[in-house]
Design a protein around this nucleic acid. Structure first.
Lengths: 190, 190, 190, 190
DNA sequence: TATGAATGAGCCTTCATTCAT
DNA sequence: TATGAATGAAGGCTCATTCAT
């Protein structure tokens, strides 16, 4: 499918760096034939981004306000990390887009995404006030989850260069992040 | 200066997205004159990357094996965050490069950088064994510092879209990260 | 019908400017289906031109050697002007073709059309010699009729821009041309 | 010069039919070099049209309200015919543009040109009221001059095909048109 | 050093035409 | 007949690079 090939190409080269020829090649089609299905290069890119957005934000949606706070957040962290492992191209696609100022996603970032973050931040604040979660800034907590999980996809080259072949970065990261959020978020006992 | 303009352009557009014309314009020179000083577009880009690398890694070099562990690490975190605030273009430049597989920096990542990380990981392990630092994977600890601090520069568009105009992301981040690493790294008392 | 749509498109855009897609759209067919009936774009264009040629030259054929000279010519002028009014697309189609050097019609121009003009010129000369028509070059007389009548179709945009909405160009033109050819062609009395 | 080559190409092929390659070839330059001087194909075409417009309308400007009516008009006719002979490419360029609905010149036709025609029509009407010119519609008189003179440039292919090699179309046309306008415009004596 | 001019290579896109059904 | 799908060949335009001065 075209979007499959486009994902590979755009995530690896960025929008400007990618060529329709590469997308066509990756999809096993001729260049004009790709443009038979999509009006333009930008149309492919846009379809890709918006088409993947929902899936990308799915883990956050699944945070359950009625769940156990630490478990919910750890589950979210684990799900995000798993997404980085399973869908690193998607992660890099979004990273590329945001890195360059999010020319296409800007409205969504300040709209749909912001709303969703506000919603979750509200939940976290509720938990904090109830003493079920340590006091931290909920939005920066979310940023930290994004940063720490997506890092393994977006900076994979660097991670692998430093760790070498023997390591399983994601398994180690899961361990590390589990510890990190336990210690950060466990409410003070006493 | 040419590299100054090139930094702005390459960090905002990526290598393929940037044009020599834009670099020349940003530097106040004509295009052929830029190419009088640099042999090619790639030469500019390479000079930029390697020229900034030392500065970029400076904060890590300053971790003092003989210092107080938590203070050293918090100082490192604060320095990295400050660099994201003061040099976001540099952060994005490196992010772009690594995101696309680090075609130019690959050797350095697996060489100089890996060595430096190994060195610091050794220090951290020493501290851990001495009971002066909580037990965490030292390399992933370093990754976490990179991810959490550079996120504010690399994903600035997203951070601002979510926080809105009123917030000072870096001040809040400093607070958050300070808490995070305190809780994560304080050795078990008792 | 395909040629009906093709006439609209080719007369408005010229051969190179028209696309088979536009022709197909105008005809309510799919592009491959248009090419099922016509071998190629040029084939459509050629069929259109040659198919309309006879109709286009009909008024000239109807000049009656046995008629009253002035009346015959005035009738021809009126018929040509009426054709410009009723069939402006045809007029523009031929104008486009001739303007670009008549790549397809060249042989017809120097053959069939030239013969017909020669024939009518002979008739006019007979009338002139008989003192029934003022002495003018009969071929340039024919050119003048073509130029003056087709102008209102071919340069319609300009005519309308200059006259504005209120005018009826063709009615005025009929009046003007009637006067013109009366004065030009009435044999000297006396 | 580029516009020289562009004139040849655009007048012979129309805007859509012409290619930048042809313009470049006609100008003795490479294709990108043409685009070094003009921003786009349309920019070349526009420059050509607007740059030639003043020259094209010059003969009409020279009609002298204080001159002898018939002589002024005959001079205008002769000048226009001479322009068709000397600048047939310009004539065809404008014909192509107007034929296709004057997408670029439309404003000028309804503005500057219309004003000029209105002005001259006023002069003609003055002459008519003074009994120095036969009564004819002054605007259609102007259309007739355009049609009859430009015909020899725009339909040159047809004119030559019909007249054959031996004739000098323009010399004959001058004779014919001189007679035509004398008879049309001479005020009734008596 | 500095730059106006020039160009080969490449990229996005269009389009006539063909293929498969 | 009819059409969705496919493509080779072009054409407009960009851009890194080179040339000439």
């Amino acid at each position: 499918m075209i979007l499959e090939g486009a994902l590979t190409v755009f995530s690896a080269q960025g929008f400007r760096g990618a060529t329709i020829d590469q997308v066509a090649e990756a999809a096993g089609l001729s260049k004009p034939n790709v443009l038979y299905y999509f009006a333009s290069k930008e149309d492919i890119y846009r379809s890709l981004l918006t088409g993947l957005l929902d899936m990308w934000l799915d883990p956050m949606r699944m945070i359950d306000p009625n769940g156990e706070p630490l478990a919910e957040i750890q589950r979210y962290v684990a799900a995000k990390l798993q997404m980085s492992r399973d869908y690193p191209r998607e992660s890099r696609l979004f990273a590329n887009e945001v890195l360059q100022g999010a020319p296409l996603l800007n409205e969504i970032l300040g709209g749909q995404l912001r709303d969703m973050v506000d919603d979750k931040a509200g939940i976290f604040n509720g938990w904090i006030e109830a003493g079920r979660l340590a006091k931290v800034d909920p939005r920066h907590l979310i940023f930290s989850i994004w940063a720490l999980t997506q890092h393994y996809a977006d900076f994979e080259t660097q991670v692998r260069a430093i760790l070498g072949e023997e390591h399983d970065p994601y398994a180690e990261a899961q361990q590390f992040l589990s510890t990190l959020y336990d210690r950060l978020l466990a409410p003070d006992r006493g």
